[in-house]
Design a protein around this nucleic acid. Structure first.
Lengths: 248, 248
DNA sequence: CCAAAGGTTCAACTGTAGGTTGAAGGTTTC
DNA sequence: GAAACCTTCAACCTACAGTTGAACCTTTGG
């Protein structure tokens, strides 16, 4: 029998903080697993905001065990799943949504939802009847959602049309309504989303309004990954509150 | 009553041996579904051996129904699964075995491995130093997060210990801090999370306080899935706001 | 204390994927 | 017979994912 390989991590004592590694050491470790890893590549990934190791006072990068784990994940997603770095960045930022969330089964969206968020691809706009048909929500509910500003469909030549985001909102709201969370309760979410958007806008606004298209694009991109992180954070806070209320 | 619109394809009836289409017609058809399709792109895909339509005696390309279907698949794999053409070509050549079987030796990974990697970090409670090591956050930041009630570690026998959720919060906050969102800005998220938790608690509270432990556990679970839905909804609302801010 | 080994940034460069454009010309359809 | 549509081919373009080199700094071990 082949000796089972002895990975650097010991399965049980995973909590061992262990020594932080320099970039060369990390590179050497991962070389057996990924033949295309290199020091310059690791630096490049950091430049692309996929990693951010601590630094020594002298500026040397120091990779913790979890940094290495994250890097391993990045390299695997790239090599085996063919994901572009932009997508990997999002998946890692939104960690909870796609990876931890445990809704890998519930969500039918797993493949399609990976699409970029702010770049509105599917341009399809549906009518009210079609939305009812697609989401299974009562028409009345949709009306309420509009009244409370939860969905804000476009008016187009006298007709009201709903885009993909509107429809997803309707689906989520419908699910909540089945357990007794009515549309009026959702206003709370709406206003906090507004506040949060303003916060982010205040931060990135200047670059977003920049006339330099390169700068604008960059800002838009970081806005996307920021949104994912913020959402993840909010989710964590909510879950924690709920655990407490539950008397955990 | 608005007339329900009549899509170009008839759902079940008629015209089995449908007419073969020229490249322009195919392009027009797919444009509603894929906004980046173009005549030159379709030709390019053929050049890359992903398609091979019949030709008229004069050299015009003629696309059968199944050619169109194949093209649709190609575009979908490219857009939604981010597969490079080289891989799509192979998958299609392999007669769909790879698509359906998902085998490929090296990518048996789809959901399971992802979860494993990120979940496996044990439920252990770590000390402050360990958290610093693991997350790469400055100790100062963690202190601020505690002051603002963003993380609320447990005190255990005089020592402060951080559980997995605390650590994830620190990670997310650290990422945000790098782009200028300081701990104090996060209070906004905290208070909205609190409000939302109260809302949900009011709804499911009774079962949560049940003395029957089974019932309690069940309620807790549906609460978590509710939280996931709520988080998703909030995310959508946020993204919509941001899109508006970015859009003009 | 000092040298060697290893690290840092930054700008410029490379290679490949995935197309687009334009010119010059042929085919179909009315 | 002309308008609309199609053909090829070569040149060009943009983005992504890095690599390379120069100039300089940090760590470590004898």
């Amino acid at each position: 029998m082949p000796v089972s390989e002895q990975p650097t991590r010991t399965p049980e004592s995973a909590s061992r903080p262990r020594k932080a590694l320099t970039i060369g050491a990390v590179c050497k470790i991962l070389q057996s697993e990924f033949d295309d890893v290199s020091i310059s590549k690791i630096r490049y990934l950091e430049d692309q905001k996929l990693l951010s190791p601590r630094r020594t006072s002298g500026g040397y990068r120091l990779y913790s065990q979890s940094d290495v784990e994250r890097l391993r994940t990045i390299l695997r997603l790239q090599r085996d799943e063919f994901l572009p770095l932009r997508v990997i960045r999002q998946e890692l930022a939104g960690g909870g949504e796609l990876i931890l969330g445990g809704d890998t089964e519930r969500k039918p969206t797993n493949g399609a939802a990976r699409r970029a968020i702010l770049v509105d691809t599917s341009r399809a706009h549906l009518s009210l009847e079609e939305v009812v048909e697609e989401t299974g929500a009562r028409e009345e509910l949709i009306g309420e959602l509009e009244n409370f500003g939860i969905v804000e469909p476009e008016k187009r030549e006298g007709k009201t049309v709903y885009d993909e985001t509107d429809r997803e909102i309707v689906r989520a709201a419908n699910e909540l309504s089945r357990v007794g969370v009515g549309a009026r309760n959702l206003r709370v979410f709406r206003s906090s989303a507004d506040r949060e958007a303003n916060l982010l806008e205040a931060l990135l606004g200047p670059s977003l309004r920049s006339r330099n298209p390169e700068r604008r694009k960059e800002a838009l991109q970081s806005l996307e990954s920021l949104a994912a992180t913020v959402s993840h954070l909010k989710h964590l806070l909510l879950v924690r509150d709920l655990r407490r209320l539950a008397g955990d």
